[in-house]
Each structure stands twice: as structure tokens, then as C-alpha cells.
């Protein structure tokens, strides 16, 4: 089963300390070597993003940054696991590394299952 993990944090959180960058690099390297991480990437800040929104039958296009956004997605990784628990265990390590190497950081790691390739599209409930 395939999962995506998002790391979410306040927009003005600043640059991560070198120790975290190094620890995350090591963790990700091991995850790729173990074969269960299949893709990962960091995202540029919302200031450089563009939103295309459909409301009331019309489309509006808005460039970032956006006001009143509490948390933004800073990065993602795609994991292939036999269970959600395994994906959660891996995501928890990412949270631990942030806590250890960047004590003032606050944010979250969200784990979501990706539909397919082993199943049909999810039913929206």
C-alpha cells in the first residue's frame, strides 16, 4: 500500500538548523536504501505558489502568499508499506528528529493512504 506523508509547519518558521538537515538526510538515505521510500521532496514556500479556484461557476487564479494560513506543507515523502502502522512508525521518526534537532519547531506530520495501484479509486464519504 502506498502512503504520502506531509510535513506541515507555520509559514514563518525559518530555516532548519544544519543538524536537522543532516539527520533528515541520513534518515531518508536509509529509507531509500531499505526500499520502502519511493519519492520525497521539499516544497517552495506558498509565496511562490498559485491557486486556481472554482467558486460559483467561475475560476479565479490567485498568486501567493495567502493571508490567514496557519500551517503550510513544507515537504512530502511517498512510502510503500504493508500497513498504515508502518507508515506511521516512519513518520513518527521524522517528528522525533524535528523535536530533537529543532526544539522550538512546532508542526505535524500527516500520513495519508494513496489510492491504487493495488485498488480502485477511494469512495468519497
Amino acid at each position: 500500500m502506498r502512503y504520502i506523508a506531509f510535513v506541515k509547519m507555520a509559514e514563518d518558521v525559518g530555516e532548519p538548523p544544519a543538524a536537522l538537515v543532516e539527520a533528515m538526510g541520513k534518515e531518508m538515505g536509509e529509507a531509500f536504501a531499505a526500499g520502502w521510500m519511493v519519492d520525497a521532496g521539499g516544497l517552495y514556500p506558498p509565496a511562490q505558489s498559485t491557486e486556481i479556484r472554482v467558486t460559483g461557476g467561475s475560476i479565479t487564479v490567485t498568486d501567493g502568499p495567502y493571508a490567514e494560513v496557519k500551517e503550510v506543507i513544507g515537504g512530502y515523502s511517498i512510502l510503500e508499506m504493508q500497513s498504515q502502522q508502518e507508515a506511521v512508525a516512519a513518520a513518527r521518526r521524522v517528528a522525533e528528529l524535528h523535536r530533537e534537532h529543532w526544539p522550538e519547531w512546532e508542526g505535524s506530520v500527516e500520513v495519508r493512504r494513496i489510492s491504487g495501484p493495488d485498488e480502485g479509486p477511494p469512495s468519497q464519504g
Binding site: M1, F32, A33, E80, Q82
Partner: peptide, 18 residues
Amino acid sequence: RPDLCLEGVRLARMLAHL
């Protein structure tokens, strides 16, 4: 039934790193 395809690909990735 655990996904042996997934496990097979995973082992192949491991071996390629090693």
C-alpha cells in the same frame, strides 16, 4: 495476504543499494 510483489520490489531496491 501480504503483498509479496511489494516485498520483492523492496528487496530488489535494497540489493541495488547494497
